[in-house]
Design a binder for these strands. Structure first.
Lengths: 221, 221
DNA sequence: GCGCCATATTTGTGATCACAGACATGCATC
DNA sequence: GATGCATGTCTGTGATCACAAATATGGCGC
């Protein structure tokens, strides 16, 4: 089959229009949520075999991920998930702080009670993942918390930028949360919710900045 | 020829290792410097013919540019340079302000006299381009001014992020500087240089923010 | 003259192939 | 037994082809 029928209203999590997009989305999720260890190598034919496509869509999805910084292109074409230096981690953490503080600030005036409820629900799921020591689930749910909040900012370009940073940090975050001993509940998330309820913008900015920065600080040796 | 010999030390502006990279770089420069009007369509076979390559490298370079937000992928695969909405322009301008203020702040402690001299030289070139009403030259030299400053920040991830934003704004900036009546010298650039000389961080942050924001503000109707 | 439908051309998608480097394995030699 | 080299397999790159959808074109009927 060369081109599958285009779904009118894609289920947004299921089959997509094109093969390379399906492969891209699958790999992107695996990388962002830390399912792939830093330094792991990927081959075109391997990806193709794994997802039942030929080399062409595999190549396109890998190249797209390289363009977004999710994968690093070693000398002579080999691609692998990058092993970030401490300086780069610090940079990416600073970018997260800059962009996400702005996003939360823009979301604040639009944050209704329904949003806060949803954030609290997600928070409970996070606590559950933490207690189960499910690293991938933790990362995914944690990012879902942030994405849910930032979606209210109505700033798609900024959100895309933030997600690109998440993507670059994905393989490294896995290593971080493996190193994280204590099974602490998301304290900063509760500060974020409290600031949202109170309409306290400076408090919100501070809480988001702390939440984004503190985790990554552990990683810098 | 299927793979050209790999240059030991590439001249950084000339032939690159792979064909798709050469095409990518050429298109990227054209887009970033406003050489392509918003809404202009690009075809795979057209790009291939123009650069003397087959469809495969053309497709990869286009897809990479789409991944970076430089091109928009219309319904059913057609790619064209995007026509940005006012909201999106405002977002991208805010991103420029956030990231570039941070970059300049990080560059400040490392800014020696040689750097300031180079910035002043670039500034004279900018004035020349302005007087010649050379829009593409103006945009390129203006971005060179910013890049030269930010390179001193030693923050490659942040700089890459900033360049991605420039890329997205490229086709629109062309429209902006076409609309710009007055042939003014770069006033904010002189404020930036003065702040650098004085080691005045708050002044530098303010000057960069103004320089980045004011131009784009013209564009929002 | 104007609108509509059938056809022709263009365009993106994905598969396959040939080729050249890169890497690993193993053999022969000292 | 260790080292150096040759061979063999793997991997990315780029070209070409077949196919289907979308767009453009032209002719027909009213």
């Amino acid at each position: 089959m060369s081109r599958p029928v285009k779904p009118i209203a894609a289920p947004a999590t299921d089959t997509s229009a094109s093969a390379h997009d399906r492969v891209y989305r699958a790999l992107r999720a695996r990388i962002m949520y830390g399912d792939i260890a830093p330094g792991e190598a990927l081959t075109l034919r391997g990806i193709g075999r794994e997802y039942g496509v030929s080399m062409t869509p595999a190549r396109e999805s890998l190249r797209r991920l390289v363009a977004e910084g999710a994968l690093s292109l070693s000398s002579s074409g080999r691609v692998a998930t990058p092993e970030l230096s401490n300086e780069r981690i610090e940079e990416l953490a600073a970018l997260r702080a800059l962009i996400e503080v702005e996003l939360s600030s823009r979301a604040l005036p639009r944050a209704h009670m329904a949003l806060i409820d949803r954030l609290q629900t997600i928070n409970m799921t996070i606590a559950e993942k933490v207690s189960k020591r499910d690293a991938v689930g933790y990362i995914r749910t944690n990012l879902e918390f942030h994405r849910t909040l930032y979606l209210r900012a109505q700033a798609p370009a900024m959100l895309a930028m933030a997600e690109t940073v998440w993507l670059q940090l994905g393989p490294t975050m896995r290593a971080l949360y493996g190193r994280l001993r204590r099974t602490d509940p998301p304290q900063n998330h509760r500060l974020i919710i409290a600031a949202l309820k109170a309409g306290d913008e400076p408090g919100l900015r501070l809480a988001v900045r702390s939440d984004v920065t503190q985790g990554l600080r552990l990683l810098v040796v």
